[in-house]
Every structure is written in C-alpha cells, then in structure tokens.
Design a protein around this nucleic acid. Structure first.
Length: 300
DNA sequence: AAACAGGCCTAAA
DNA sequence: TTTAGGCCTGTT
C-alpha cells in the first residue's frame, strides 16, 4: 500500500485542499461508507470525482474520493495525519487480499458467500473510534439508519467540539464521555435518543469512572471476554458488542447477528453456518452477507 | 393506522 | 436457558 503526497508545490488539489493519493486494490469507497458501519459520512454530490464522501472522525473533517477501485484519495489531510489516523481508519493498512483468500478457501467458489463476496468485496471494515462506535451502536438498536444518523449528528452538534472546515462550515466532533456525562440523560432524551438515552449515559459514566478499559479490549485476543466487558454497559447486548468489536476495534472475527444477518443465515444456511471456517475473518463475511441480502431486498 | 426499524431489559417459566 | 412484552420516535 503506497501513499504519496502530490509532488512538492502541488500538495493541494484544485479546490485548495491538501490530499493524499493511496494505491490499493478493489476498494469501494461507496460500499465502505454505505454499508451501515458508520453514521457520520455522507455522499458529496456533485463532485469532480466519481464518488466522494465527507464526514468527521477522530475530531477531524475529511473527504474520501475515488475514481476507480485501485485508488483512494483522502482529501483535507496532511501526510502525517494520513499516516497517523486515516490509513488505519480506512483499512488501508490491512492485507485484504489475504482476507479474501482465506474467506474463499473457507466457503468455496460457489454458494452464497462467494456471491456475497463478489457483490460486496469492495467493503473495507473501518477502524472507528471505540467510544463513538459504542455510542453509535447503542443508538442503533431498534432503530433505522436515517434516524441513527440524525441522532448522532444532533448529539455531535449539541455536545461535540466545533471544527471549522475549509468550506466555511462548522462541523462537530463526536462528544466525549465527559461532555455526555455533564449533559445528563435528560438532555440526551431531548436530542431524540428515546430510551437509549439512559444507555448512552451509562456508557459515559462507566468510561469516566474508568470501569471500561478500551485499551485492554484492544489488546485482548479473547473475543468473548471483550464482549463481556462491553456488555457491562446497560443497553449493550451481544449484537451491539460485536459491532463495537468489529467496527471500533478492528476485531475481524467478531460476528454481529442482527435481523438481516439472521434472515440471511436462515434463508441461505438453513443447516447452519460453521463460523470457524471463516475465522479469523468471520466479521468480514458477516458484512458481505449483510450488504448482499440488503441489496437483494432492494434496501441499498 | 399498525407495523417496523442492524436490540435489549426485565420478569417469568 | 429460553421466551414474552415493552420501549422512544419517525416513517411508511
């Protein structure tokens, strides 16, 4: 994976934004940001690029653009921020070819998983901020993606640190645990979280009290233990815990089972699916399946 | 207008 | 250990 700034003196694109071009393989920016793993990115349209998404992560505003599957353009970033943040966030430090080969050998050339991999193989699992991921997927429960996005934006806009962006718009970071704690559960309810307000508040409380050790989770290889740690937060069950491990910690073997995946499993694998065949990348297969059945059902 | 949305909690078998 | 209701809120 190579990243380079444009040559010296050309470090800004025609719109005046500093950018980095990354060579890669079979990367779909659209699938990656539309597959439901993150809630703060949206399509930029019109755009001089074939596809372009914009959003906030790790307290910074970026745009991610693409003209073909072999190249990703990260806009509004310095090279050092790319190396320190975006390379990892965008999954550009992972050998996805190896992931694909392992999944292919686990599920064979025919069958639904192979079809799903063909349809959704451009997806990259993002490595999002664990705290933001935890809150976002608590909010996601019994909820739909447009409203999840709306709530996360409301939370950020009200409680997150402002970010002045090059287009003159002020955007906002995702709020810290302290900010949520200070706001109180009532304020969260007023922002539209509904009964999830108490859950997010509880997450903030545990974090602020040091009862939730993200570093320990990040360093552990014991998925069950990691999930158990996350489930100490009220409102975090098996599905949300798995999502946080997959999308917030890059634990690619975590396998969230939601209504869609449950549907896919019962429809396509009535006899059951042996997840160990997909290990240690079962979560990637999960995301392919999720994307696949939703596209079959016309939801994407 | 009843049901549903990338679940989870509590109570009860 | 598994199962039944209830839950904020917006949309269809």
């Amino acid at each position: 994976m190579s990243a380079k700034m444009a040559a010296a003196g050309l470090s800004r694109d025609p719109m005046g934004l500093p950018y980095v071009i990354v060579k890669t393989e079979n990367y779909s920016v659209a699938q990656t940001f539309e597959c439901g793993q993150c809630f703060r990115f949206g399509r930029v349209s019109p755009s001089p690029y074939q596809v372009e998404y914009e959003g906030v992560a790790f307290g910074k505003y970026i745009r991610v653009a693409q003209n073909h599957p072999g190249e990703v353009i990260v806009r509004n970033t310095s090279l050092s921020d790319y190396e320190a943040i975006w390379k990892r966030y965008l999954g550009l430090d992972t050998d996805w070819g190896a992931v694909g080969r392992r999944l292919a050998e686990g599920c064979g050339p025919a069958g639904v998983l192979a079809a799903a991999a063909r349809a959704a193989g451009g997806i990259r699992i993002l490595r999002q901020d664990p705290w933001e991921t935890l809150c976002s997927f608590i909010i996601s429960q019994n909820n739909n993606i447009p409203r999840i996005k709306k709530i996360v934006e409301a939370l950020s806009g009200r409680l997150g640190a402002p970010i002045l962006c090059p287009d003159g718009v002020t955007r906002h970071a995702f709020p810290t645990d302290r900010a949520i704690l200070a706001a109180g559960a009532g304020a969260l309810r007023a922002l539209g979280l509904g009964y999830r307000a108490e859950y997010v508040y509880d997450a903030a409380r545990l974090c602020a009290e040091g009862q939730l050790d993200f570093r320990a989770i990040a360093e552990s290889d014991d998925l069950a233990a990691c999930a158990a740690a996350l489930r100490r937060v009220k409102g975090v069950g098996p599905k949300v815990a798995a999502c946080v491990l997959l999308f917030g910690f890059g634990k690619l073997d975590a396998f969230p089972v939601d209504v869609w995946v449950r549907r896919a499993l019962s429809r396509y694998f009535p006899a059951g699916l042996d997840l160990s065949r997909l290990s240690p990348y079962a979560g990637v297969a999960q995301q392919y399946l999720f994307y696949y059945i939703r596209s079959v059902e016309g939801r994407v």
